[in-house]
Simulated scan of single mutants.
Amino acid sequence: MSTAPEPNSAVWRKSTYSNGDGGSCVEVADWAPDLVPVRDSKITDGPVLVFGATGWMAFVTGVKSRAF
């Protein structure tokens, strides 16, 4: 049995790289210890991907350093 909260109870925040023109944006939330839910900001009732915090931080670091 999982003790993590439901993703719909999360407080979502949009990427700081998001602009107001309706482009591709992601939202993340502080949700459960060691888990980071991610969703498409244009489809808020759509699927949610949940990543481990360590993997998510590695991804964010790679994006910031333009490794991808």
Score class of each variant (00 low, 15 high):
T16E: 12
K42G: 08
R13W: 14
V38S: 11
T16G: 07
G20T: 10
A32N: 10
N19G: 12
P33Q: 05
D30I: 03
G23D: 04
W31S: 06
N19C: 11
T16N: 12
S15I: 05
I43T: 10
P33G: 00
D34G: 10
G20A: 09
S24T: 09
A32S: 15
P33L: 01
C25F: 12
K14N: 07
T16F: 13
C25S: 08
L35Q: 15
K42A: 11
G20N: 06
I43V: 12
V36I: 15
V28A: 07
D34N: 13
G22E: 10
K42T: 05
T16H: 11
G22Y: 00
S15P: 05
V38N: 11
V38M: 14
V11Q: 13
I43D: 13
V26E: 04
L35G: 09
K42M: 01
Y17K: 12
V26Y: 02
S9N: 10
A29R: 03
V38E: 15
E27K: 14
P33D: 05
V28H: 01
G20E: 12
S18G: 01
S9C: 03
S15Q: 03
V11G: 03
G20W: 03
W12G: 11
D34E: 15
V36H: 14
S24Q: 12
G23K: 02
V36Q: 09
L35H: 11
G22Q: 04
R39C: 11
G23L: 00
S15L: 02
P37T: 04
D34H: 11
V28W: 00
A32M: 04
S41P: 09
P37L: 06
P37D: 08
V11F: 12
S9F: 10
S15K: 00
V26I: 15
D30W: 07
D34P: 04
G23M: 02
G23N: 08
K14V: 05
D21M: 07
T16M: 12
S15G: 08
I43K: 12
D34F: 08
K14S: 07
W31D: 09
D30M: 00
V36R: 05
W12T: 07
D40H: 04
A10L: 04
L35P: 02
V11W: 08
T16V: 05
G20S: 09
I43A: 13
D40P: 04
D40A: 04
V11I: 14
S41Q: 11
G23R: 07
D30Q: 01
W12I: 06
G23E: 06
